[in-house]
Design a protein around this nucleic acid. Structure first.
Lengths: 248, 248
DNA sequence: TAGTGGTCTAGACCACGGT
DNA sequence: CCGTGGTCTAGACCACTAG
């Protein structure tokens, strides 16, 4: 059973990485060195390296070389308190969060969002904000949120500099319930550009809707994070049936 | 600023897919047709198609062609009731879940797992089970779980045919609390083989520890699912502080 | 058997980073 | 300047699928 050469080579290199022969942050041998070592064409070596890149084990930098990925993940806590104050949550993990606003504008949202937010105006409108979350100086996530126009009107400027939830809470607008879906998706060209990751890089998406005490939807959005740098934590308790309900 | 040819081509093809010119399930033009259409070398076309594959938009089948991905996701509900009865949860979504046991054996778990399960024997032991979750006939996830040896001893055979949680609940062993991390990772060669997905295919990992009422850890494991076919849902409520706590 | 995608080669030129 | 990875070409052979 003939296994492709490029796979044999990438598996061999993977072993070396996992056994610490190439340390995190270190540079792999250059293409020409690997060509000499394995006595194959450049195409094959490049395919082997591509295999390692798609597995998230290494990344390449033109003009410099190929380097072993350092991996430590930041945890988003999906707890009722911490999820609302991401900045503080980050601080607890010793990280600094800054926010770069991309857009904030009034739009007619897609039909699905109109329904979720129960928009009734003609035309139905909401404020769309896109921002980049920068953790310790590196772009880590994009947040895309639709908020009710009256909220955007009142607090738009603040949304540009802080997380939406924390602005609302500071203004006395309490969020009672958040229902969310967590999924994973590969980076397309646009996100690849904003987060400086290669095409197809795994992303973790937190798509959420926040409701006030009277069950009114306040906002709907998604946080799209580099899956190599972020994860979510959650606790499910049996005794508080009301705390986690079937969604969808 | 010259954009690579392969990117221009893959973006063009992506537009066609998103505008429905190539429908889900349909076949893309063959490599030779694309070579003719764009007047470039085969390498460039193959790179363009590789771009689409890493973005999860298409998949290739040797000897047949390249096809547009169909996409609909199954939702795992992280609710206190449903998370424990995956099979029933699947049934609610009109899906059939079957389980294929890979291994069930007594082992000395990695140190990290020893600590989580508070194992104290010499040597510390637990029962390791690996199984494949097959949804509607297609392998969708791998579950790797370490259970306390006394539980494995008593119910091992049942674990082979059903989800661990539901077996325990049927036996009157109630699970009080589950703390979990959700993260995303690219497929390595081993998982790529078991789930028949290409190297680097995005996977969503649910790493959990289940505790009994008296805070004893019962089991620790992870469910590794194809991220193109599964997602998780969760609801966070403000009023039940105790229901979701900071986890790390 | 014909057509598809998968692997591999040898070679060229370009863009970037550091000397 | 040289060495690195990135793009691109032309061509060969193999493996799989279907008629």
């Amino acid at each position: 059973m003939p296994t492709p050469l490029h796979l044999l080579i990438s598996e061999k290199l993977r072993d070396r990485i996992e056994q610490g022969q190439y340390q995190p942050g270190e540079q792999l041998p250059s293409e020409s060195q690997l060509i000499a070592e394995f006595d194959v064409s450049r195409t094959t070596i490049r395919q082997a390296i591509a295999n390692l890149i798609t597995q998230g084990l290494v990344f390449s930098h033109q003009g410099k070389g190929v380097f072993v990925t350092e991996r430590k993940k930041v945890t988003y806590s999906l707890s009722s308190s911490a999820a609302m104050f991401l900045a503080q949550d980050m601080a607890n993990q010793g990280l600094q969060l800054t926010i770069k606003n991309l857009t904030l504008e009034r739009v007619q949202p897609p039909l699905e969002v109109q329904n979720i937010l129960q928009l009734s105006g003609t035309p139905p409108q909401a404020d769309l904000q896109k921002k980049i979350l920068i953790i310790d100086g590196l772009a880590g996530a994009i947040d895309i949120t639709y908020v009710l126009p009256e909220l955007g009107e009142a607090y738009g400027e603040q949304f540009k500099e802080a997380m939406t939830f924390s602005v609302l809470e500071k203004q006395g607008i309490m969020i009672d319930r958040v229902s969310a879906i967590i999924e994973c998706t590969p980076a397309n060209a646009e996100i690849s550009y904003h987060l400086s990751v290669p095409l197809g890089h795994p992303l973790i998406v937190y798509r959420h809707t926040a409701y006030s005490k009277d069950k009114t939807p306040l906002l709907h959005g998604e946080t799209i994070s580099r899956a190599d740098r972020f994860c979510y934590s959650v606790v499910i308790s049996q005794d508080n049936q009301s705390s986690s309900q079937v969604e969808q």
